[in-house]
């Protein structure tokens, strides 16, 4: 079986020399292509830290993370940035769009860094924004969009680089129920139709209900890993 993500004995200790805090403690996790996985657990359980380690935003204290067989924990910071650009899509809790760019420019920006030609960038950005239901908001800046719309732009941006998987950290935490429902439908559709792998940390039961696999963390350790049938 080939995995998109393989984490072995992953540990992240904060303040190792003073009062050590085990944010992630000996985690082993494998994610297959096309999974729709939720990382759940109480606040401080290590969900975000685990996502950061998997996404190459942080280095583990011990253990390794392999993305499509490549160990990213051995990469230099600069190589890791490039690796993220080519392989991983991110959706953040606070949307984190570039405020001075329009929706389509935000989506294009990732492709610009991949040095894709202007025409291809523009075309693909329009397609992606259409896919997330924002074809009428191409030229609006983030401040002119609702939270739900901003998060959908963030999903389109995450997809723009054609990543192997998308990591979403509490993607619905700032959204109302209608926007949450809308966003989940889009992510589920992308997962189902395009086989896009999603891993998200969440507290939101509606998100957990949509997930096909739920990994529960407590005090930095995986305490349960269950596959579930989608409720809707």
């Amino acid at each position: 079986m080939s995995y998109v993500i393989e984490a072995h004995n992953l540990t992240k200790i904060y303040n190792p020399k003073t009062i050590p805090v085990y944010a992630v403690n000996g985690v082993d996790l494998q994610v297959e292509e096309g999974e729709f996985t939720a990382l759940v657990g109480p606040s401080g359980s290590g969900k975000t830290t685990l996502l950061n380690l998997i996404g190459g935003l942080d280095y583990p204290t011990t253990g390794d993370v392999k993305i499509a067989g490549v160990d990213i924990t051995k990469m230099s910071e600069n190589k890791l940035i490039d690796f993220r650009l080519q392989n991983i899509g991110f959706v953040f809790q606070a949307y984190n769009l570039i405020p001075v760019l329009t929706a389509s420019e935000n989506v294009e920006f990732v492709m610009l860094m991949q040095k894709k030609p202007k025409r291809e960038r523009e075309q693909h950005a329009i397609e992606l924004l259409k896919e997330v239901g924002l074809s009428d908001r191409l030229n609006n800046r983030p401040t002119e969009l609702s939270g739900g719309q901003q998060q959908r732009v963030a999903v389109a941006r995450a997809l723009a680089s054609k990543p192997r998987f998308i990591l979403a950290d509490e993607p619905t935490a700032n959204l109302d129920s209608k926007s949450t429902e809308n966003l989940l439908d889009i992510m589920a559709k992308l997962n189902k139709e395009d086989k896009m792998t999603f891993i998200f940390s969440t507290h939101d039961q509606r998100v957990i209900d949509k997930a096909r696999r739920v990994v529960t963390l407590v005090d930095g350790k995986i305490v349960s890993d269950e596959k579930q049938t989608q409720s809707s």
Binding site: G55, L57, E77, N78, I81, D82, R84, L85, Q86, F90, F92, A94, N96, I98, P99, F109, V110, M113, Q114, R157, A158, S161
Partner: peptide, 13 residues
């Protein structure tokens, strides 16, 4: 936060 995001999504140094 913006610089963090830019580096996260792949903007190199």
């Amino acid at each position: 936060r913006e610089f963090g995001m830019l580096m996260a999504i792949g903007m190199n140094k």
